[in-house]
Nucleic acid binder design. Structure first.
Length: 594
RNA sequence: GCCCCAGUGGAGCAGCCAGGAGUGCUCAUCUCCCUGUCAAGGAGAAGGUCGCCAGUUCAAGUCUGGUCUGGGGCGCCA
């Protein structure tokens, strides 16, 4: 039907007769001559209908409208001097049309298919097939394919076997809320869609697969964010006879290959941070390492403080920390007030700001500070004259970290501390391994210890003895990859010892009977010579979003859902017929207060 | 569950703080003109119960309350 793709034509094709198929991108009607930009998957090319050369085409060409699907025959011509278009890859040539066939007409599109307008996301999703015609979305999907393709090549070359695992599986009460599927053949019972293939991949290790990977959809029924969809794609990996360094090395090599092949960036070795160091320096376990502005601990300088707000930071478990905004001492009061509001919205009681000047400190709390503190505070915060210090104090250190960490990430970009860099520039990509996570975290509401990673995560040998006596001191064999402030991957060396696994479940407050009911199949499998094993699961959507420079994973998913987990295109979720409910042994309760 | 932002002809915005006739801008649509444009240009036209429901007021796009939808975040996400 066609001889070339529109966007591929170059001056080397000059004189060639071509047949092109594509969509009318724009139309410029000059009366005796009409130009259209014809668009296909490869790009745009200008087609000329010149009615003195091809008078037969006049009627059809005048009838062309945006997004008509057409076939054009013609000849590739070099454009005359002064009429070339540098903005187009095909801008040195054009196609002089000799025939025009309208393959299908288009209604007036609900929005313009171009890169120049930001359209309401709801509308984009409702007409996603039009939204996806845009260059940005086409290149995002192509980039996604290139990344996944490179990932598969890597694991294929390293002895991994891709194995599929069930989509209809068993609910796991731990962790996120499950999506449930009623079982027609088992009245009252439900399958769950997998939150991840975690248990299956461990079983594959027991089965002797040795090295497994899978690019797999996972499902979590939790509230959405810019980096979270109810169904999302993971690169799931598991390896036998490995320790942490083996998994880290293979995974890091994979990322290096993908970045080299797809983005042309030769990555340096990943930085490594312990969880404790990351929290102390950046207030988060997913730090953006593209700029400084690290958190500083002011508790030393404020030992003797009389100021009540700062005293909160000296309480057991509390903290008083600061970030310094370089040369922002003159920030307008209105903007500072906005920062204070932001801190409060993030859970801080307030935000103390201090502008450092040559002649001293300027701050609403200046009068509460002693002479020593006037001298020591800027020094402890590493601030110089002209800087603005932002201080948060709270009885809970995690509040201080969360607030300052979050403000740091936002302000870093807002203040232009993150330089624009080319994709191929290794400096654009600040990968880091975060290691030595605590195993447990305290669920204050339930008054219980819960797993930070998951219940099958290994424990470092030197902290395993704290399992029963001091769970807060237990460190896990878990590791994360972070990139530019995003968590990209999470994994661990697993427990392969049945006795230890049972001790861990006991520490989580899960009884033997309960454990047997929930994960008995895994514990049973561990009775049959399980190999030491471990793995990792990078998020494909996040990897692609970062690589594409998007700040939302919806931009790299063909058919994503809205924040309320709905799909405006298909109308999902939707009610079902009474017949269907009947077959599933389900009766609906009217919605209402419970 | 909570906080913040947004909703105005088909699309994107302004108008709202400080109430006075649906006012304006860019694009799209329709008609006409135009042979070198390229997000073409020129002339004209059509198109809106200002998300929805209440309230305040002589008068509401504008003020108040509620609600729905979309987006960002907190909680949640082993």
């Amino acid at each position: 039907m066609r001889s070339h793709r529109c966007g591929d034509l170059r001056t080397t094709d000059e004189g060639a007769p071509v047949a092109l198929c594509g969509w009318v991108h724009t139309r410029r009607d000059h009366g005796g001559v009409i130009f259209i930009d014809l668009r296909d998957v490869a790009g745009l090319v200008q087609v000329v209908f010149n009615f003195s050369e091809a008078p037969a085409l006049q009627g059809a060409a005048e009838g062309l409208r945006s997004e008509f699907c057409v076939r054009v025959e013609g000849e590739v011509r070099r454009r005359k001097e002064g009429t070339t278009n540098e903005a187009l890859a095909t801008g040195e040539i054009e196609v002089a049309a000799t025939s025009l066939e309208v393959l299908s007409v288009s209604a007036t599109p609900p929005f313009q298919v171009d890169e120049h307008h930001d359209v309401e996301e709801m509308l984009r999703l409702k007409y996603r097939y039009l939204d996806l015609r845009r260059t940005r979305m086409q290149s995002n999907l192509q980039l996604r394919h290139a990344i996944v393709s490179s990932i598969r090549r890597f694991y294929d070359a390293h002895g991994f076997t891709e194995v599929e695992t069930p989509m209809l599986t068993r609910a796991t009460p731990e962790g996120a809320r499950d999506y449930l599927v009623p079982a027609r053949l088992h009245p009252g019972s439900f399958y769950a869609l997998p939150q991840s293939p975690q248990l299956f991949k461990q079983l594959l290790m027991v089965a002797g697969l040795d090295r497994y990977y899978q690019i797999v959809r996972c499902f979590r029924d939790e509230d959405l964010r810019a980096d979270r969809q109810p169904d999302f794609t993971q690169l799931d990996v598991e390896m036998s006879f490995v320790d942490r360094e083996d998994v880290l090395a293979v995974t890091e090599a994979m990322f290096k290959q993908v970045w080299a092949e797809v983005l042309g960036a030769e990555l340096q070795d990943f930085v490594r941070l312990t969880f404790a160091e990351s929290m102390a320096r950046f207030g988060t376990d997913k730090p953006d390492l593209r700029f400084g502005m690290e958190l500083t601990d002011l508790s030393g300088a404020l030992q003797q403080t009389e100021f009540r707000v700062f005293q909160a930071g000296k309480e057991e478990g509390g903290a008083v920390k600061a970030i310094v905004l370089g040369s922002q001492g003159g920030m307008p009061r209105k903007q500072i007030d906005a920062l204070v509001e932001e801190a409060k919205a993030l859970g801080a009681g307030g935000l103390v700001w201090i502008a450092v000047a040559d002649e001293g400190l300027r701050s609403p709390v200046e009068k509460f500070l002693s002479e020593d503190e006037h001298r020591e505070l800027p020094r402890a915060a590493a601030a110089k004259a002209g800087d603005l210090i932002l201080i948060v104090a709270d009885g809970h250190a995690e509040v201080v970290d969360r607030v300052l960490g979050s403000m740091r990430n936002r302000l870093g970009k807002h203040l232009g501390l993150v330089p624009e860099r080319a994709r191929a520039d290794p400096e654009a990509w600040k990968f880091a391994w975060i290691v030595d996570f605590p195993w447990f975290e305290r669920d204050e509401a339930a008054g219980a210890w819960t797993a930070i990673h998951h219940p099958f995560t290994g424990i470092t040998p030197d902290t395993v003895d704290y399992l029963e006596s001091a769970p807060e001191k237990v460190l896990s064999k878990a590791y994360d990859i972070t990139l530019n402030g995003w968590e990209l991957a999470s994994g661990s060396i697993r427990i392969h010892d049945r006795a230890l696994q049972e001790r861990v479940l006991a520490a989580l407050g899960i009884s033997k009977e309960e454990a047997q009911a929930r994960f008995g199949f895994l514990l049973d499998a561990f009775a049959f010579g399980p190999p030491p094993h471990g793995g990792i699961a990078p998020g494909i959507d996040r990897i692609v979003a970062l690589a594409a420079g998007e700040d939302n994973i919806r931009e790299v998913i063909a058919f994503p859902k809205t924040q309320s987990a709905a799909d405006p295109l298909t109308g999902a979720p939707a009610p079902v017929d009474a017949d269907q409910l009947e077959a599933l042994h389900l009766a609906l309760k009217p919605p209402g207060p419970t």
